[in-house]
Design a binder for these strands. Structure first.
Lengths: 237, 237
DNA sequence: TGTACATCAGTGAACGCGCGTTCACTGATGTAC
DNA sequence: TGTACATCAGTGAACGCGCGTTCACTGATGTAC
């Protein structure tokens, strides 16, 4: 805290970062459920018990990685949207930019993607801390969809009462004020986005499938159109 | 093989089944990467080495579970589609029936779903045998989309050359003969279907989200409409 | 139908291994006066 | 500026555990004549 107290604190912060980096590398080897403190320590030429000066337990380290991953993805998404905005792109362009940012981040951080959007680690319960950043993507989407001037939706099945109630719960307060059918379509688009990234990244399009960048982009355009996102800001689609 | 030889063979088949059942139960405890032969043996009151009479290794057992899971899901999907057909439903009804069958199967077999559609198990490579049944869902979709009499697509961005090439690779021979934009939309619908099931099942709609049956159905209707699937068989949409 | 032999299922002990976590310790870095 | 003490980082040994897999074995089930 004091001016000179930061010397030790700085080196501590740095080592904490190095431990997390090593752990991220280890994730690639064994996956989240196989992440081993001893392996991380080995990678840093430390003795395993030394890690306990920095993290209370293996789960605490995992939690830190999850929080970092959400924050890193959120930053990438926010950055992409802001750049699109500054570049004068309309809602559709922003949606495409955000989608591609998510996909790029996922491929650049494959094992962190699996950490936050893969199947849950049995026996590990993510604590509260991880929830905030997870909503950032939804918030950005709300900003884009909310910027839509006119509500022309090409496909819009009726929203039944049960669905409306579910939407109210899940979208509060992020999507408050938007019509139910718009929110429903936004959730469908959000689902497509995350599903498409995972399916491709996890190799579930089949063994000879090359990365599906083209179909991903196509799907983004379809969902963007579905949401009635205009090409430019001035409402002239 | 011979008439009397089947006595021992029958009991062997039965025990093989019991081992797989116990392993499926174990999946819930530790997940696929933590599946332990010793835990399976314990569950059956057997000594661990006895399992080697039935499976060559832990990976062989995992592979058997994966194959079974694909086959079971495929059977559920084919059954749902056939029942819809017999019930006189048109393409849209069949699509909804198939989608709900996938979702129901996933919730009834949560850990097997994670096994085949969750993040890959590090260090485990699925052998060739698992590929055939994985395509069954795509085949059923092709049957539904191919039954579509008229090709009115509400949203259909242009299909660029790169995408067309990718579609040719991935859809051969299942979707051969269908127009590129129809195939592209089918892939988007397929992606939505799997993504929506996983997102919901893995709890990624947030901590207070109840199972998202209503939004799932909504998304199915949207994607079905997107594919231009008519309500009834006679072409009158 | 009855005996002699081969096949197979399951046992129990053992192998070498890696794991998370604890604990008492040494020595270096910081703090107070 | 210099000394006395407290805080902290990292060490090294040890704990109890569960894992996949092997191996020589016993006894039961099937096969051939």
């Amino acid at each position: 805290m004091t001016a000179s107290g930061t010397a030790r604190a700085r080196v501590r912060a740095q080592l904490t970062g190095e431990i997390k980096d090593a752990a991220r590398t280890e994730l690639a080897v064994a996956g989240s459920s196989g992440l081993s403190l001893r392996a991380v320590a080995r990678r840093l030429d430390m003795v395993p018990s030394a890690l306990y000066r920095y993290f209370d337990s293996r789960d605490a380290l995992l939690t830190a990685l999850i929080i970092d991953a959400y924050a890193s993805l959120a930053a990438a998404v926010v950055d992409a949207d802001e750049q699109a905005l500054r570049g004068g792109l309309g809602p559709l362009g922003r949606w495409l930019a955000v989608g591609h940012a998510v996909r790029s981040w996922a491929w650049a951080h494959q094992h962190e993607w699996a950490l936050i959007y893969g199947s849950p680690v049995p026996g590990y319960e993510a604590p509260q801390d991880t929830l905030g950043p997870a909503l950032e993507l939804a918030r950005v989407m709300a900003g884009i969809v909310g910027a839509q001037p006119s509500g022309k939706l090409p496909v819009s099945p009726p929203v039944e009462a049960e669905l409306a109630a579910w939407l109210d719960v899940i979208s509060d307060p992020i999507f408050s004020g938007l019509a139910h059918d718009v929110v429903a379509l936004a959730v469908v688009a959000y689902t497509y986005l995350l599903g498409a990234v995972s399916l491709d990244l996890f190799g579930q399009f089949g063994p000879d499938a090359t990365p599906a960048a083209a179909i991903f982009d196509y799907g983004l355009r379809v969902t963007g159109t579905l949401l009635g996102l205009p090409e430019s800001t001035d409402g002239a689609s």
